[in-house]
Structures are given as structure tokens and as C-alpha cells.
Design a protein around this nucleic acid. Sequence first.
DNA 1: TATATTTGGTTAAACGTTTAACCAGCTTAA
DNA 2: TTAAGCTGGTTAAACGTTTAACCAAATATA
Lengths: 337, 337
Amino acid sequence: MERKVSLKDIAQKVGVSTALVSYVLNNKRENRVSPELAQRIRDAAADMNYRINQVARSLKTNKTNTIGLVVSDIANPFSSGLARIIEDEAEQHQYTVIFSSSDENARKSGKLIDTLLDRQVDGLILAPPAFSEHQIIRLQQQQVPFVLVDRYFPDLKTNYVALDNFGAAHKGVEHLITAGCRRIGMLTYANELFHLQERVRGYTAALKKHKLPAKKSLIKEVDIRLQKADIEKAIHQLLTGPEPIDGLLFAANNLAVAGFRYINTLPVKVPEALRIVSFDETEALEFYHAPFAYIKQPLGEMGRLATRMLLEAIGQRPATTQINLEGELVVKTPNLR
Amino acid sequence: MERKVSLKDIAQKVGVSTALVSYVLNNKRENRVSPELAQRIRDAAADMNYRINQVARSLKTNKTNTIGLVVSDIANPFSSGLARIIEDEAEQHQYTVIFSSSDENARKSGKLIDTLLDRQVDGLILAPPAFSEHQIIRLQQQQVPFVLVDRYFPDLKTNYVALDNFGAAHKGVEHLITAGCRRIGMLTYANELFHLQERVRGYTAALKKHKLPAKKSLIKEVDIRLQKADIEKAIHQLLTGPEPIDGLLFAANNLAVAGFRYINTLPVKVPEALRIVSFDETEALEFYHAPFAYIKQPLGEMGRLATRMLLEAIGQRPATTQINLEGELVVKTPNLR
DNA sequence: TATATTTGGTTAAACGTTTAACCAGCTTAA
DNA sequence: TTAAGCTGGTTAAACGTTTAACCAAATATA
């Protein structure tokens, strides 16, 4: 790359100090500089194609106007949808965003956070993986502005914006009950993350409320990594045996897609013999042939709120805000054909 | 945020110059510094929790180890899939990536590029929108390292990695012909972008090769923004009239999804009366009830190659590399049920 | 007339690194 | 004995900004 034009170059050309150029170009001390000279400086900057060096400015001002985003996987539609919202909201405030994917791996997320901090990001938006609590605590100690999104740790007093997972699961299960289901199973990840625990809690509470069986055996957990075979086995177990389920709640979109794929190979009729509710909206089920319902997360609101909260925090508002948004139950009927 | 530990702080604590600390921490001049002192410095750095300030380093070295990525929309699975590959490849070389979405808007992409350059990114990976050729030319003049991805401008000698769009479309159409289609239509965007033109060219060539009608009226173009109604109208026109089509090529995944949605409302039978080939793999068609085919882009290779080419270019290899990857024709049969 | 104040700028330090150039004290070779 | 070379460091400038502090000349105030 060719050498770039600096303030000094402009100053030289116009015959003033670099300080003055800086003042003019940043519209500071406007009353203290003569309009004609200011114009000459601006003109010079324009026809020399001056562009500020943000790195230098950042070093001096200790601000990068950059926010770091750590999601589990940017290729996942949930993450990338969120990223897009955050990007737009950030852009409106002259912020850019560096993203990275933690793959639900605490070690990796720790490394990513460090890298982002080394780059002096002004703040972080994080979807923390399981067992990353200590990282969050460290951020608190270091007084780094951040907000958690989608997930959070219940006994940490941090900013976050997430779903009301208990309520959403509860609502999903009640939908099944209303539709006539009496033995309702749940498929979730074997994971410590609070938001998943809350979904289980909501599921259980809804069953109890309606005096339906809430046995442990109705809840199947699968490893977050080795999906397919496990999922099939779990669903198979729920569907066979003396008292097969007639309703099923998926705790995450990936589970739902894999689950639907398997269920499709079975003779079981959806929704007559098995009615399904899933978490998260997912494109993949766009053309599913049978009706089902899902909990739609307010992605837009989540992203916007998270970004605004972060910008607030960067701007020194030391308050902590915790928001649980309501999920919407959407009943999807197949695209007609 | 609390004040951070700097090289100077370490130097003071150990009682040496900051230069020496820098040398040690960067493993430079290893033979010129005594092992014990080096260890003391490292220890001090460790228990003071020293973390380098990349901004300061970047200012001095004129390198940010950051690459800028401009896609059309990070929320689009194609873009986010690509972004993920690029992220991983970049990370392996200690690069991070700043992303932004141009929304197929040349003005916006210009602004984004400027912002990225202000931040002194070491290079750019771009999926340029239509009418952004001049921006690319400027980058060339400024000798900014960059590589185009997915799209490119045929009369610009730039690095790029994209699909062999002509070949892919050709292959898709031949698939239809082999399956017995005789009147094959195409739905594409009204857009100058070369890669779309190439798809049309491939479509036309395949028809001509097999002596099938290649009339203008078989190609429908819709605006890239106001999709739904336009798409329905276009498909309706192709399907009705004196000689309705029996085969259809979609030039992009969004078109395919909207198209399938509409076709589903029609009495026409897929694939018996209408056989379909689409560009791009898309989750949304996962559970489509009828067989169809699509051109699968080698996303992984595309992202990896683009990143490597960019890193090469950043490392001063002035050669320009142009790669057209082959698309794979995938025939998808419905998930059984 | 003497003193304050305003006007329109300049000077210089600082942000936290990197790195070329330097240097004092030894060791070695001739 | 002396010059050259090595060892293990230090000094200082520089990267491109920002911004507090300063200053001379012109103008206003008493």
C-alpha cells in the first residue's frame, strides 16, 4: 500500500500546525479558527484524499469504536441473524463489530475474548458457552463493558438480554396440552447452561400445573456435539415402550431439525399421533409437510437492546440491566400444495 | 475500565528498559539477553497480567492483523457460511475479521470499504455489489490487498475466487434436458453482475447445444428487492400461455425459496410437470416434498482460497490469481416419510 | 494610558509499542 | 599491548493522532 496522507502532510501544504488541522477536521474550537483558513484546510484534506488513521486516534483517545461479538457459530442462522441486527445498530453509532465463533467451547471463548481485548474493543456482546462463568467474572473485575445475550448466569449480576425461557417452554407445553396431548416428552441438550435448564423447568412446571406426568424418563438429553445417532435413539425411546408420548418439545432448533428428519422416517403421524413444539424459528422447516408450533425469539429486539445496553455501558452508565423477553408461540401450518 | 499494564510498568518493576521487555516478550534477539533476566521479565509480565496493546503495536508496525469482510448480508446463510470459513482460516494465521453487510448497495459498500480502510485493515475480502466497479479500481490504485469472492468484474485484473457460473448453469440445464424437459425457463435477477450474466449465458448455451428453444421470453428477470409479487408473476407467465415450460432454473437461492413457495400453491406437479434446478444449497428446502436439483457451491474451498490468497497478497506477492471453482449438481430426493 | 480580554493560532507532550543505533565492559587474537 | 569482537543491555526516535497549555497581536474596558 502506498504511504498515506497524514495530518502533518496537510499542515505542511497549507502552512499551519498539525494541531490546527486536527481541530478543523474534527470541528473543534470552531469559534477559534478563521473560516477562510478552515476552508483552505478542508479543501486541502479533500484533494489530498485525506483519510484519518483510526489506529492512531484510538491509541491517543483510548477508544476504538469497535465492539467484539462472540457467538457460538456465525454460520448458525440464529447467530448470524443476531449479528446482522447488531451490525446495523452499531453502525448507526459509528461502531464496527469484530465477530468470532466459540463453538460452545469455553477454552476457545476465553481465547477469543482475550484477543478482542488485546485489540482494545470498547465492549463485548457475548453468548457465553457452558463453563465460561469465570471469564465473565474476570470481565466484571476488569470493568470491561459487556452484555450477555441469549444465555446468562443466574447468580451473576451482569447485563443481559435473553428469552424468558421458563415462560416460553411453559407456553409451548400448554399449547400441546390444549391440543390434547397427555404424555409430553422433551428433548434437550445435556448442558449446564441456565437457559436450557430454564426450559426444562418451564416444561416441568406446565405439566405439573395440569396434573400430567412429569417423569424424569420423559426428558431426554443428548450431547451437544454428537447429534444424530443420539437424537434418534432418544426419540425412539420416547416413542416406544408401554406409554409412548403424544407430544414433544424440542429445546433448540438443531434438535428440531435432526428430530424432524428422523421422525419423517417413522410411521408415526404428525400431528395426529405426535404433536410437536420446537424452540427457535428455523428456515429448514419452511416446507415441512405437517403442522407444528415453535417459539419464536424476538431476535431483532434482542440484538438492538443488547447493542444499546452495551453502548450505554461504554458511556459509563454503571447500572446493570437484565431483560427477559417473551417468546412468541407460532403455529405453523404447511405451505399449501 | 481500569488502567492497563504496559511494557513500561513491567520494565519499572523489573528494573530494565522497556525496549528489553519488548524484545523478550516478542522473542527477539534471544541470544542477546540473559536467560535469567528474560525469565524474570516473563514472570513479571505474567503476574502483572500483562496483555499487549495491539492498537499501539499496529500504529508502530503499520499492521493490524485484521481483515475486512464485506458481504451482501451476513444474515444470509451463504454469506454467514462463508464468513465462518474465513474466520477459521484467518484465525489460524492470527488474523481477526471485521464484517459488514452492503445490502447489494454500491453506495453502502463504498462507505464500508472506507471505514475498513480507516481502521487500517491489512486487506479486504469483498463480494462486490453491482455498480461498484469504480471502488475496486480505486483499491487497485491505492494498492490495497484484496480479493473478490463470489462475484467479480470480468474486465478487471483482480484476484478473485468464484464459481464457474457458466459451467454450473450449463450443467444444471443439461440435467433438465436429460430428464426429458424440452421447454426450459429461467428466473434470475435483473442485475448487471457478471456472475448472473454468466448463469444466463450457460443456460442459453446448453439449450442451443441441444437444439432447444432459447427464446428471450423464457428468461424472466425480477428486481433484486421487491421479490414476492414479481416472482409470482414471472413464474405464472412461464407456466401459462401456449407453450408452458416443463423445466425451470432458478439463478439464486432466494429466488428458489420464493419460487417454490408460490409453485406449492399451484396445481402443477413437481417434478412430473415441472422439473426444477436451483442455484445454491439452502436449508429452507430441506423438507421439500418433491425431488429437485441444485448447484452446490464449494463454500469451504471458496472461503479458504480467498483467505489464503489475501494473506499472500498482504505478504507482498503481487501476482493476481483468478479461480473459478466448479459447482456440484446435487439431486435431492425428499426425506422419506 | 494601562490593563484585561479576545482572537487565532502554535508548541509540545502523550498514548504504548518497536527497533535501529549505541555503549560499556569483557574476552579473544595477533 | 592493542585492536577487534562479543555480551547484554540502554537510548531515543518514531508511528499519527489529540489536546492542554501557551503566546503574540489586536481589541475592549476602566
